[in-house]
Design a protein around this nucleic acid. Structure first.
Lengths: 115, 115
DNA sequence: TACATTAGTGCACATAAATGCATATGTCAA
DNA sequence: TTGACATATGCATTTATGTGCACTAATGTA
């Protein structure tokens, strides 16, 4: 067990890495479908993605923007089209970071959490 | 790169492990505060947790139920009190599972996602 | 038994989020 | 330059979620 100050620091670091926007973005079925599509089909433009989704094109466009802001997708404007693709690097780093910090935090600050 | 059938199977496995309830639960500031409190203070009853939160006791109670349903917290009824604690084991396993499947899925099904 | 304590539920309300239509913005092509 | 196309934005509507008050259920205590 750490000192109280060290405990607080570790917990604050964990909580500040629990990106609300990141979790909220992943907690919506429509956006998960978009993520699935992009893993399956790779880099695609808004129109192509929309064709596979039940929602309106404008709705899909907004979902894509949110996912981009959350760091899950890349966005590249090319002439008239905007291509989105999974930002695998950032996405995986985010997940790894959250997982590692959680493990570290619980083992150091709350061993009783794992009894 | 895998066969198309294998790709679909891997992607479906990933998406089915992207537990919407889990992500939604973590994507709310009030619930994150509760998580923080429980890591810091360990197993506590509803009243004690509520005292540190700005929301009404009933609101905190509902958040705790949600977090329990999402597998993040343990719940133990003892006489009049209900004690909640972080389910570290399940929480960490969930995060590790999601992280591992995502890495595996992207490397096998969408290597271009990491360019 | 009567009363206090603890947690959860019913309900109404406020806020936030998802959705679709119409329209604007920017880009290409004839 | 005109028209078609791709995407994003404004706006209104619906749906979902968070919130607090009042009340109930369950348990312990005087």
């Amino acid at each position: 067990m750490e000192t109280e100050e060290e405990k607080k620091r570790i917990i604050d670091e964990l909580i500040s890495n629990f990106d609300l926007k990141f979790f909220r973005t992943l907690g919506e079925p429509g956006r998960l479908e978009i993520l699935k599509f992009l893993i399956q089909n790779g880099r695609s433009d808004v129109g192509t993605i929309s064709e596979s989704m039940p929602q309106d094109r404008s709705v899909v466009s907004r979902h894509l923007q949110l996912m981009h802001e959350a760091g899950i997708l890349n966005s590249e404007k090319e002439t008239r089209h905007v291509f989105y693709s999974v930002n695998g690097q950032h996405f995986i780093e985010k997940l790894e970071g959250i997982t590692a910090l959680t493990k570290q935090c619980i083992s150091k600050c709350c061993p009783s959490c794992c009894e």
